[in-house]
Design a protein around this nucleic acid. Structure first.
Lengths: 267, 267
DNA sequence: TCCGCTTTGTACGCCAGCGCACAGACCGGC
DNA sequence: GCCGGTCTGTGCGCTGGCGTACAAAGCGGA
C-alpha cells in the first residue's frame, strides 16, 4: 500500500487556496482504509467526510436479494460524504473501500461548517458533486447498453486514473461485485483482454499493459465521465507555495488523447 | 393538458416562505412544454431553470449509436437545471419533455442569484439534488438487475406520482426509449400488466387501474427512490397564507403503504 | 516442501431481451 | 365513410449473460 501523508494528493484539498486550506488542515486526520472496510451503510449517520489520497471507495447499493452494483467510485479526485453538505446526512447506498490506501478525514460538523462558509471550497464541492452525478447517470446508461467487456474496460480505466501505479490489487470476484455481474463473466472478459495484450493478471493482481488498447475496447462512457471531470474540476488553480504532487499521481494522463476524438481537457 | 397557473403546484416553489418566494415570483414565467420539446442538449448553455407543475421532463443520455436511456425524471417535485447552481452550467445529458404540460421558468442569472442568497431555497435545492442523485444511482442498479416488467412498473409509478390524473399520454415506443429497451419489450410487459388488471391502454394512452398491483410487481427501486424523496423533501413547511394545492396533485399517496414493508414516510 | 484455501478456468443448459419482419388495429382527418 | 399513417401485436431465430457445477492452478503458511 503506497504511503501518502500529503493532503495535496487529494485534488480537492490541493485546489484550496492557502487561506481556506489552513483552517481545514488543522483538523484533517490521516487514516488507513482497508479493503472491504465500510465507511457508511444505508441510513447510517456519517461521522466524517473522507478525502482519499491513495484509497478508492465504491458507492454502491445492495439489494434485498443480496445482488449489488456500484453507482460511482471515489478516489483522490473527490470526497466521500456528499450527503453531509447536501443536507440529507445519509443515503440509501453504502460506501465500501475498493482499493486499500489512505485518506484524510474531517469531522462532520467541521466539514459542514467549511461548506457553509461559501468560499472556494463550496463551489468546488458542488462542481465535484455534479461530476459525480454525471458518473452515476453514465453508469445507468452503461449498465443498460454495454457488454461486460466494455464495462470492464471503462471500470479499469476509471480506477487506474485514481491510482499511482499500473497495478490493481483486486480479485475478479471483487470486480464482478462492483460491476454487478457474475464472476465468470469477468474471467472471460479479462481473459480476452489478456490475450489481446491489454492487461496481465495473476491471483488478485491486475496490471495494465496497454492503456490505449483498453480505451479502444471501452465504451464511450469512460470518455464522457473523464471529460466531464476534467471540465468541471481541472480549471482550479492548485495552491501555491506547497509542493504540487498531483502530476506524480496521474503520470499517464497526457496520453489519453490518442484514443478519443474529443479534445482532451485533462491538462 | 391540465392547466396550471399556480406556482404552488411545484413542490419546491410551494415550500418557500413568503419572503423568499416573493422576489422569485415576480420573475417566474409560465410556459407550456410540448411533448418531445428539448429543454437543453449536451454541452449547451442552459438559459432558464424550469419548475414543472404539470409537465414531466426526462433527463437522458443519447449515445453515439443513437441508443438512449433515461437517468432520471423531473416533475412537479423538482427543477430542471441543477447544473446552473452546481456550477457546471451544462451537462453531457439532455432534457426532453416526456409529458406535455406547464412549468414556470426562471432566467439563469436570477436563479443563480437566488441560490447564492444561501436562504431556505439553497438548502431545498441541495436536498432535491441529493434526491435526484439517489434516483440516478437507483436507475443504474435497476438497469443492471431487474426485468423489463419490473422497470416498467417502477417507471409508471414514478410518473404517476408526478401527475394529477391516473392517465399517461404516452406511446409504448416512447416508454421504450425512456427505459432504453425495445418497443416490443414494452408491448409484452404492458400486455401482462393489462391482463393482470393493473393497467388498461389504447393507442397512446395508459390508464392505471390498480396502483397496489403495480407496486407489488415493481422492484424495490421504486420504494427506495420514493422514500428518499419523502425523507429529503417532505419535512419542509408549505408556505402559509396561500392555498396549498399539493394534496390535489397526489391524491393517491396515502395508499402507498400497502405494498411496501418499509415505513411510509410520504405523508 | 507440502497442504489447504482461495482464486481462476471451463463447460453446460437456460432464458430474457434483442433485431427483424410483418400483420392487424386504431384513430384522425378529409 | 374511407383512407393513410401511426401504433400495437406476434412470431421467428439469435446471443449475451446467468446459474450451476466442478476442475485446475496459485499462493501462503506451517
Amino acid at each position: 500500500m503506497p504511503f501518502s501523508n500529503n493532503p495535496n494528493h487529494n485534488h480537492l484539498l490541493a485546489a484550496l487556496p492557502q487561506e481556506e486550506f489552513e483552517p481545514v488542515a488543522a483538523h484533517l486526520e490521516l487514516v488507513t482504509l482497508r479493503l472491504g472496510e465500510i465507511l457508511y451503510e444505508p441510513d447510517e449517520q456519517l461521522q466524517y467526510a473522507y478525502f482519499p489520497t491513495t484509497a478508492i471507495v465504491s458507492l454502491h447499493y445492495v439489494m434485498a436479494s443480496g445482488a449489488s452494483a456500484e453507482s460511482a467510485g471515489v478516489g483522490n479526485e473527490g470526497v466521500v460524504g456528499i450527503s453531509l453538505f447536501m443536507g440529507g446526512d445519509t443515503t440509501p447506498s453504502s460506501a465500501v473501500v475498493q482499493t486499500a490506501g489512505h485518506a484524510f478525514r474531517l469531522a462532520r460538523q467541521l466539514f459542514k461548517q467549511e461548506f457553509q462558509r461559501a468560499g472556494l471550497l463550496q463551489g468546488l464541492l458542488l462542481r465535484y458533486t455534479q461530476a459525480l452525478l454525471t458518473q452515476m447517470a453514465q453508469t445507468a446508461v452503461c449498465n443498460r447498453h454495454h457488454s461486460v467487456e466494455q464495462q470492464l474496460c471503462r471500470w479499469l480505466l476509471l480506477t487506474l486514473d485514481r491510482l499511482p501505479s499500473q497495478e490493481l490489487i483486486m480479485t475478479q470476484e471483487l470486480v464482478a461485485s462492483m460491476l454487478g455481474v457474475r464472476r465468470e463473466g469477468i474471467t472471460e472478459a479479462a481473459g480476452n483482454l489478456q490475450r489481446a495484450g491489454c492487461i496481465s493478471y495473476r491471483r488478485g493482481h491486475i496490471s495494465v499493459l496497454d492503456r490505449t488498447g483498453l480505451e479502444k475496447r471501452s465504451c464511450e462512457c469512460y470518455g464522457v465521465v473523464k471529460k466531464e471531470f476534467a471540465r468541471l474540476l481541472c480549471d482550479v488553480q492548485y495552491r501555491q507555495g506547497l509542493p504540487n504532487t498531483i502530476q506524480q499521481v496521474f503520470p499517464q494522463q497526457p496520453h489519453h488523447t490518442a484514443a478519443f476524438t474529443r479534445p482532451d481537457l485533462t491538462r
